[in-house]
Design a protein around this nucleic acid. Structure first.
Length: 512
DNA sequence: ACCACTCCAG
DNA sequence: TAGTACCGCG
DNA sequence: CGCGGTACTACTGGAGTGGT
């Protein structure tokens, strides 16, 4: 069956909002028409009627846009309906202010594949752009409402205050260091990250550690009751934006101003507890008064320099255990819920040559649902163990394929079906169909993770004998017709890639 | 005690 | 989190 | 006809819940 409830702030609310906007406009138009009908007496030819229709359509869609935008600022149906009833469309935007204690939908970033693209896309920003480390943790909005009241909201605006009490304490404590803002209400946009504070500077731990050991209120109570020792990790709050300070919403202020105020609010970092996201300002050459006549003229050296600096910073961020960089136009405002062109994310796995890429063998599959009914999806892929001639499963893949590929490969693999999981295949998965393996696909992933279900590397890991390895966010890249299953990535190579990654991220990853 | 299921993070 | 398909708008 | 926004279909890991 299909599930309709996915995003709390999504499909259903959006429909309701659009309908509300339309109803409001039509209601007003109806009132207007009645008045007009009273004055005139049946003159309007067909042409003016259709022109009126088009104009009406435009008014409706504009109203819908206004309400949708207002909702991203203050996602409360009650407030919107009340404003609509009392003051019409105009009143809605006015009523939907950012208020500490109520979440704003977080601004999102577009993927971007390297320094050249960053330069091309942000060249229009006269104020330049800032590159910030992209920390691999949980996105959070921390609200201090004053009088010791606080709230934390997740990326999807769930209230996760209880889960991140430490983060609240960190922000409160750090704010006290500011002479002028110590008692101000504030809303900060940040990333909460698992860290090891035994080292200086604090070592950033992988996302998996945060996911497995971030304490929930209930879980913590349970652990305390049973073992006494809470298996929780320390977290550090990396702040990268401020949306409200004192009495003022900063959502419409340019990033340059928001970052200044963020510095003012947190003049002192608390190492390993609250830090500013590592960042650098890039001022673009060749923009401004001179650039009008000499379009691509001077500044080539500066441009090369910028590429080099940006690429270096990307490598540094990866070395520090981050996902890559966020590059943001300094003259941009905060656009709630928008995947904006003003924010670009450059991740390691987007950049050619920096991604983990594996050559794997399709060994089984399931039947897809919905749009993909009738095709195989997902596919189960495996690495080889040359010593035993076995195939060990690594991950399921369902992304990166075209529909045409699905059609072709489903037909092709239906000729390769075998009755059961072949003897030389090691996996805990229960595929719907099993294949006689014959080819190799190149698969790209963001990271290698410890897995309780996948067999590759099981028993070969020094740090953990009960788990195998898998890929985070696997996607299909291309067929490798030049390879046969015996030439696929071996489990030992996979284990070696994992240990290189572990070196980069440091020890302290998830264990049992 | 264990399993199936849902929900949540990415 | 990812990529792809699809639909409506200009 | 191209673009942007949305919907769809999925993944790895946890915590939590409710039933047997």
């Amino acid at each position: 069956g299909t599930r309709a409830v996915n995003l709390r702030i999504g499909a259903t609310d959006k429909l309701v909002l659009a309908s509300l906007a339309k109803a409001s406009v039509l209601h007003r138009a109806g009132v207007g028409l009645l008045a007009a009908a009273g004055r005139e007496s049946g003159t309007g030819p067909a042409s003016t009627a259709s022109a009126g229709e088009a104009a009406m359509k435009q008014v409706v869609s504009q109203a819908q846009e206004e309400i949708a935008t207002a909702y991203t600022m203050r996602p409360s149906m009650e407030i919107i309906v009340k404003a609509l009833v009392e003051g019409g469309i105009e009143a809605v935007s006015a009523a939907c202010h950012l208020t500490p204690g109520a979440p704003v939908l977080p601004m999102l970033a577009r993927p971007c594949n390297g320094a050249q693209e960053v330069h091309a896309r942000l060249a229009l920003s006269k104020a330049g752009f800032v590159a910030q480390y992209k920390y691999d943790g949980m996105r959070a909005q921390v609200h201090l409402m004053g009088h010791g009241e606080a709230k934390v909201f997740s990326r999807s605006c769930e209230d996760s205050t209880e889960q991140f009490e430490d983060a609240v304490r960190a922000v409160s404590a750090a704010l006290k260091e500011s002479e002028e803002h110590r008692d101000d209400p504030i809303v900060v946009d940040c990333e909460i990250v698992a860290v090891d504070r035994a080292e200086t500077p604090a070592r950033i731990l992988p996302f998996q550690t945060l996911a497995t050991k971030a304490k929930t209120a209930a879980g913590q109570a349970k652990k305390n009751a049973s073992e006494g020792t809470g298996a929780s990790v320390d977290v550090c709050v990396y702040v990268f934006d401020v949306l409200f300070l004192g009495t003022r919403s900063l959502v419409h202020a340019p990033l340059s101003e928001r970052l200044e105020r963020l510095r003012a609010a947190f003049p002192k970092q608390v190492p390993g507890v609250l830090e500013h996201a590592e960042q650098r300002l890039f001022c673009l050459p060749n923009v401004g008064a001179v650039s009008a006549e000499s379009r691509s003229g001077g500044g080539e050296a500066e441009e090369r320099e910028l590429h080099k600096d940006l690429s270096n910073m990307l490598m540094e961020s990866i070395g520090a255990g981050c996902e890559g960089l966020m590059c943001k136009a300094m003259d941009s405002t905060y656009e709630p819920s928008k995947r904006s062109d003003a924010w670009l994310k450059v991740k390691r796995d987007y950049v050619a040559g920096l991604a983990d890429s594996l050559d794997l063998v399709p060994i089984g599959a399931w039947y897809g649902n919905g749009r993909k009914a009738g095709w195989f999806s997902p596919w189960l892929l495996a690495a080889v163990d040359p010593a035993t001639q076995e195939l060990h499963c690594v991950c399921r893949v369902m992304s990166g394929f075209s529909d045409d590929f699905y059609r072709r490969k489903t037909a092709e693999y239906k000729e390769k079906l075998v009755d059961a999981c072949p003897a030389h295949v090691r996996t805990g998965e229960a595929c719907s169909v099993w294949f006689d393996p014959f080819e190799v696909w190149e698969i790209r992933g963001a990271d290698i993770t410890l897995s309780p279900v996948h067999a590759a590397g099981l028993g070969k890991l020094a740090e953990n004998t009960s788990r195998g390895l898998s890929l985070r966010f696997p996607r299909f890249l291309r067929e490798r017709p030049d390879k046969t299953p015996s030439g696929a990535t071996t489990v030992d190579e996979f284990v070696e890639m994992f240990s290189r990654q572990a070196q980069r991220l440091g020890a302290g990853g998830p264990s049992e």
